[in-house]
Write a protein that binds this DNA or RNA. Sequence first.
RNA 1: GCCCUCGUGGUGAAAUUGGUAGACACAAAGGACUUAAAAUCCUUGCCGCUUGCGGAGUGCCAGUUCGAGUCUGGCCGAGGGCACCA
Length: 848
Amino acid sequence: MDRYNFNLIEEKWQKSWEINHSYKTQIDKNKKKFYVLEMFPYPSGKIHMGHVRNYTIGDVLARYKLMQGFNVLHPMGWDSFGMPAENAAKQNNLDPKIWTEKNIEIMKKQLKRLGLSIDWDREISTCSPDYYKHQQKFFLELYDKGLVYRKENYVNWDPVDQTVLANEQVIDGKGWRSGALVERKKLNQWFFNISQFSDELLDGLDNLDKWPRKVKIMQQNWIGKSFGCEINFKLENCEKFKEIKIFTTRPDTLFGCSFLALSVDHPVAELFKDDPSFQKFKDNCTKTGTTEEALAQAEKLGFKTSLVAKNPFDETIKVPVFFANFVLMDYGFGAIFGSAGHDQRDLDFARKYKLDVLPVVKPFGHKGDLVIENEAYTGPGVIYNSKFLDGLKAPEESVLEAIKIIENKKLGKKKINFRLKDWGISRQRYWGCPIPIAYDDQNNIVKVPEKMLPVTLPEKINLNTKGNPLDHQKEWVEIKINEKKCKLETDTLDTFVDSSWYFLRFCSPQNKNYGYDIDDIKYWMPVDQYIGGVEHAILHLLYSRFFMQALNYKDDVFNLTEPFDGLFTQGMVCHETYKDENNNWLSPDEIFSKDGKEFFSIENNKKVQVGPSESMSKSKKNTIDPEKIINNYGADAVRLFIMSDSPPEKDVQWSTEGMEGSYKFIQKLWLLHKKFMEKIDNNEIGNFDEEITKYTNSLILKITNNLENFRYNVIIANFYEMYNFFNKKLNSPISKEILINNYYNILKLLNPFIPHFTSECFEEFSKFKKIDNSWPEVNKELLKNETVNLVIQINGKKREILSVKKDISENELLKMVNSNEKIKNFIINKKIMKKIFVPNKIINLIVK
RNA sequence: GCCCUCGUGGUGAAAUUGGUAGACACAAAGGACUUAAAAUCCUUGCCGCUUGCGGAGUGCCAGUUCGAGUCUGGCCGAGGGCACCA
């Protein structure tokens, strides 16, 4: 019997899909749409296993939805602006454009080799002027709407990448890409006013039922809404500043105020600008947060001023005013009051500078005074030491009451603060979308007129310059706008802008006039299922949500603010790590093993240390090249394996044994296919075996449910069971009709997972039955007649399992139980105290 | 420090709403076939008594329940997110 030749067969079908544009999609208003989108890749040069997993998950869904009769949009494109191209180009003296285009060509071939059901006619690339022209238009539109602005601000400066980073792109004080310690620098920057939509972005999360809870919580925390109050403290001894405004979430602890603390960037700092000791303190503060040590220590430091503030609730109470390193200018008002008894940080500060600590909340039922030593009391309780607030329940009653009093006395007002800050989008890099802005000779902002768009990047320039290469492009920078000489902005846009609207572009990829077409958007959007890594939980997903808000702002153009209806975050692909005796990483290709336990270096035969399994990364050399694996085992086998071992949302371990297992399984399925074909061909006369039809029917139900819930690993197990079932069954004669009808459905169930294989099988099978590409329906009548295994328990312990017809009555079952030999031993001479009967599940007899 | 998630055989994992724990695979050991190997197939979680059966068993300790991997409380451990956010 012939082996399954995946090389020939996969090539054959991929060619057929390509020539026929099998997955080309168009608007069809008679059909329900389904938009499947996986996060598009950066064209780094080669696809990796993470891509294989991501795109296979999406492809299974897309093919399943297609079979269900949906009009499926499943596009692919390239997130093709960004630093790696620029760095690679610098190193090899290339043009980033050429480098990128070459990579796209290679990766496109690799993706096609996976057999994905993608509408390649919709392919887009963000570095193409056809794409970023529209982005520039959006930029100007948002500028007109007041959602883009320029200001001088402290920025996160990445000294390695020589660029500015957004807050979201700084991780543990380091650049998300370079890993370099981020510095603080003051620069003129462009910003998107994302904080204007804080409330919308927060509230919108509530309606995203098909998003992982984890991601929603992360975004909630990032937006960081806090409810509190602004309070004005009068200064006793200052001519220039009469008041200091602070923000607090605990106005109810105001009587326990020990001090005021200000950021060193607070306007009041002006009073001390000539004081060298203050300057020294300030310099110390700016360093904090930029060195690793300082981050670890995080010592609370203060600079005591001569200023004295009066407690607004009782002006006879006076508190000192400090500058403190832990108060940030860009949150609240850059000033706080210290509630030493009820905030650990404030208490530490008060102890350090020997300030009074007056507790004003004590736990319920606590008698006498609360003694605060070195731990602040932050729990709930009763207010005391607070005159008119005494006796209130903290915090739920007391906070609201305190705010009411503060507002009545005009000492301040209710205030909601957000942690979310505006999105800095300027990057001092060449390989990004040019910002369509110029400056006249007065340095006024001049919009580049629409007819001059796109502002394209200059090509074939010298990238080995200090700082931004565009700064050195004198000819490119000089332009004329309305006969006026202007200079182009040389910063380019953060590449996260590119990916903030690409899902819209996929709906109208060829529209020359605008980024999208309203009719297309109204039909295709939102994305029904978005699939990608959880590492984008905040950055990309929040930015995309903002972009939808921004495009709809004021105009409400498509009456839709959430781009992604369903979100699925898949786990990573992991592999063991290996190190040689010098602690150098070794790749799986560089080692060998005789027994699968000990590993040796191929180079020098020396023993290799086996490390824990970690997510595949080039730096640890624990990667497996998908291309090689596909060449060895075929795309279907790889798809099957990457779906089989773990739930898609969890990390999966790459294992050669597992990969081989999937390959063998395909071969076994092929033999099963041949067996089916042979039996049908022989036209044998056999049993009209109803059990087979029932089995297939319940399999359809199981797999359909599992598909709806992304339980792909369980489906693969279902397939193995199916194989075992039929492999046995086919040893006995079965009627042709049963064989044809059941095998037809089995092939359909397999199709989303191993499409090349099933296409080939279908082609052979089509001589027996006309093929349609529909998902099999569950026959509900058949489900009713099933037999079920019913568990018999005595005193809660399983004693017997009876196979009975579905929906058996309690009495009927009891008859069987009483006559069962095994059970008799347990109930003989005993009294049945209680019977618990759960239909089709269990009967539990309590005996004594 | 705060927030979230997860703890099931040697391994990856199954177990719709509380109702057969370990499906399905990987690995290892034993066995069958073979001159031999590969391939293939069968058996095997633990503790007892030979088979069959009985007992314990889902990180630990309690609780609710006829019945808990699943629910509640406490503890331990792992992973992830945020971090001077007032």
